[in-house]
Nucleic acid binder design. Structure first.
Lengths: 352, 352
DNA sequence: GTGAAAGCGCTAACAG
DNA sequence: CTGTTAGCGCTTTCAC
């Protein structure tokens, strides 16, 4: 039993004195095999510690057992959790994960999408870098099912799992307004992606409902990175008419906002109120705690993977979209301002 | 140009009026091809938007273009960063990443190792769940190179990239001692893994150098999880002779320690000094800041992947081990203690 | 400079 | 119940 690098199904067949067909049958437990033959095959497998080549199997089946996961960055805790959730479901169904970071770069993303097609993966879960420009056509052509998470893809209709962004932004904004703030800034991810666009929408909607004319100088859209959040906050705080509250439109932006506040030695909520969209695991350690809308990330990842599994299994129904409800976690980053009921002069109106 | 699902090399050959051999030659840019033939092949490729099947290629080569990454959990920020670093280097060299979470479970880990072998991946980067028990033999037999990161694997000698754990724990402990603490607790990952064992060693060494007899009731080893850190801290703080300082042996444990401290409304460093091994991206936001020893995670991941690439390229030198230097980040979680030289009457003893 | 043919390891008709 | 055979898409001798 020297260690010949690897044994093949033929080695097993030879040793068991049967054909490869028979071996294949016992391996996949399909087709008829006599007890005797099975025994001998199993024994041969044992003896050689034979393991079928997954590569050959995939090749033969013209479909691999991989799920492609294309996200912007694993280091973003949101995606980290998403990856984990997807992975758990995937491995439970004998699929493994091919991980790609697009870094929000359309070229990179295109490359990876093409790569998944070239690889004939079983399915792809992706978070499109752009609502309008990302195209899953290459996968579509190769009949590889796709599920979009966190963001929509307009060019190719696919199953989509995302947060109810409007509701999340809306309730967060309402929360700020309820504490008497009127000069409220919003720092948001680009509206080229679903989350950015919808969160802006929810923000604006809440402002309007409260009869507050949003100051366009207080609304910023950008890369959705920590650095963007940080710089924008600094810019905002440099103004003579600074906002009294900031709505941070995603987890990284929130991080940047907090960083800037720290750099300026400002206190939350006394000097500035802050709310963020998306919770991060360590946030409860912060003092004061930051009020956020949390996303059910694990559920989203699991669901996305389950839908993908159904598609792989042949589900042909039209694509559906699932919107998950956010969960508001109220902490003390806005409480500072005492009054629920403020009088407001100037033409318009009461807070809600 | 209807969308036949996928074209093969034969379709291209037929359309270009050449043999598959020629097509293959222009694809891989090997062997002699006349300018004319090349032109026609390229044109056919274009026309059909043909893309070679990576599956077939891998199968033919009997080696895939995948790098297996077996870590305990992507959601642990340390591994998240490691994944990212490995991925960047991998993709730059046309490899993609197969991600597996072992959850520190030996069975799961064994399964994944076998899986990587079955998949004939090009190489594996892993962080062994156990120094003594994890075996890469299956990969060894399949001649698949392995690089171990963060932890050693004793059963199979492989290239290893890890932190100088002893130095890190030692300097952290020294830092605490320098501030006058003598009742110092250590909460560490299991000594079944390299990091746990070596960090304990560094801790003990520093204590000994300072002439402090470590109280064995203050040294705990366990799962290395946040929950372990949290519960152990509570237990420690329940004692009548509580420690005045805690050394948290990894990032999750640090998180747990801080959580427990928060739950008890204790103040750092006044009520308790804390140091942690391993930095996390958000730690600088904490007030007070926690003094930690940071690991050069990205460098570790990149290096591991580079070493792996050399092995894949055929490097046959004996396995080497690279130990990376930690970087001490001194913040204010220990500073509270004013004096390097405290008097201690031992019958009882004042708190800090 | 070019192509025919064999074969990577496996599975699935199909025939016995 | 079992084996023979063909072939998945690609690369690579080896002739020409």
């Amino acid at each position: 039993m020297k260690d010949k690098a690897t044994f093949t199904i033929r080695d097993v067949a030879r040793r068991a004195g049967v054909s490869t067909t028979t071996v294949s049958r016992v391996l996949s437990n399909s087709g008829p095999v006599s007890a005797e033959a099975r025994r001998r095959v199993e024994q041969a497998i044992q003896a050689l510690s034979y393991r079928p080549s997954r590569m050959a199997r995939s090749f033969r089946a013209q479909r691999s057992q991989f799920i492609g996961l294309i996200i912007s960055d694993v280091e973003n805790p949101f995606y980290t959790s998403l990856v984990r959730a997807v992975e758990d479901v995937a491995y439970a169904h004998e699929y493994s994960l091919l991980l790609c970071n697009s870094d929000e770069d359309l070229d990179k993303e295109r490359t990876y999408i093409q790569f998944m097609a070239d690889e004939r993966v079983a399915g792809v879960i992706g978070s499109p870098a752009s609502e309008a420009e990302t195209s899953f056509a290459a996968l579509f052509d190769a009949r590889i099912p796709v599920v979009s998470v966190d963001r929509r893809s307009m060019r190719t209709p696919v199953d989509t799992v995302l947060l109810d962004n409007v509701a999340a932004a809306h309730s967060l904004t309402q929360h700020i307004i309820a504490h008497g703030h009127r000069r409220i800034a919003a720092i948001l991810p680009s509206s080229g992606i679903t989350s950015g666009r919808e969160r802006l929408c929810g923000f604006l909607q809440a402002m309007e409902e409260a009869g507050i004319e949003p100051d366009t100088n207080l609304v910023y859209e950008g890369k959705g990175s920590e650095e963007f959040g940080r710089q924008t906050t600094h810019m905002l705080l440099d103004r003579s008419d600074r906002p009294t509250a900031i709505f941070a439109g995603n987890n990284l932006i929130t991080l940047g906002v907090l960083r800037a506040i720290q750099e300026r030695r400002l206190r939350v909520p006394d000097d500035l109120a802050v709310v963020g969209l998306d919770e991060m695991p360590w946030m409860s350690l912060l003092a004061p705690g930051i009020t956020v809308a949390a996303q059910p990330i694990h559920e989203m990842g699991q669901l996305a993977m389950q839908i993908l599994l159904e598609r792989i299994a042949g589900d042909r129904r039209p694509p559906r979209e699932v919107k998950m409800a956010p969960r508001l976690i109220i902490r003390s980053s806005v409480a500072g301002r005492p009054l629920p009921e403020t009088v407001s002069f100037n033409g318009n109106n009461k807070r809600r």
